[in-house]
Design a protein around this nucleic acid. Structure first.
Lengths: 154, 154
DNA sequence: TGATATTGCTCAGTATGCTGACTATCAGTA
DNA sequence: TACTGATAGTCAGCATACTGAGCAATATCA
């Protein structure tokens, strides 16, 4: 019987569990109420104004059925807007609001702090090596999940 | 603006996302319907017969409020039993059933296969290094989540 | 012993994340 | 143009995870 600590799947779950807890704690300390998922979506909308939901999902590897609820909550908090697209009536164009921009700017230190805390047990070199190995393993397994990362082409 | 790929938190989320997808696919291929969480709980019950829910939660770092539902489903599938403890009437003693033992035995190859697939982009040495770094980062952050890992003392 | 604190478990509520199904729309082609 | 297939988004349903509250039972200590 293998120990849990020898199972990469178990380690993945634990690491992610701690990452979310650290993120929420740091952001709450800064006086905000935003989840890691909401943050990533908002930051990606800011960097790609007017993008549609499927493109957003591809950029951050979310399932398209999950995005719906995430955007709902960003809109409800007044951080983003969802508009019907003029070119494609199926699609919704997403925009960040001024309030969303302000929020992003203000919580950036907390987000960066969370990333540091997550790696606090490792040296700088080890932290970089961990990220390199994670990126490599993720790239090899990208297509194994229903929500793979998709780059925008052209 | 940092790229997502430079954020350990994002990498943690992606890695876990792929880990769950691979696990479910391998187990389904083997003809079973068991989640990673249910598997870990069942294996831990088998290794520690008669343990209570809080102890189980501590051994696999689940939140105690999450365990309730997980055990519900294991019991409903006939893989585990929940009995009132005689020593402490608040506690429930957990036992694996024969059916649970059979299931565990039969899906072990699928579970091991899933772990290999998860690391298939890495060399053996890299896979071991990734697990070492994850264990180290997790150990340093263990107490930052509501559901830390707890070892049984004595 | 009696008051207090702690512990084991459950529940309601919220937020991911997925499967599968469905509608509306668009694109390509016969 | 009519048909076919693909695409964007939503929804219902299920399974983690968590917060916070509450109940029952146990432990502790004045």
């Amino acid at each position: 019987m293998k120990d849990n600590n020898d199972m990469p799947g178990h380690l993945a779950r634990r690491f992610q569990q701690i990452a979310v807890a650290v993120f929420l704690a740091e952001v709450a300390d800064a006086g905000f109420d935003l989840t890691p998922v909401q943050y990533a979506a908002l930051a990606t909308i800011k960097a790609n104004p007017g993008l549609d939901q499927v493109t957003l999902a591809g950029l951050i590897a979310y399932d398209r059925t999950t995005i719906t609820g995430v955007i709902d909550r960003l809109v409800q908090k007044g951080l983003a807007e969802r508009r019907a697209s003029s070119r494609d009536r199926r699609a919704r164009e997403l925009e960040i609001t001024d309030e969303g921009r302000r929020t992003l700017r203000k919580i950036t230190p907390a987000v960066e702090s969370a990333q540091r805390i997550l790696l606090r047990g490792l040296s700088t070199r080890e932290g970089e090596e961990l990220m390199r190995l994670l990126r490599k393993a993720i790239a090899a397994g990208n297509d194994l999940s229903r929500a793979p990362l998709r780059h925008v082409q052209a």
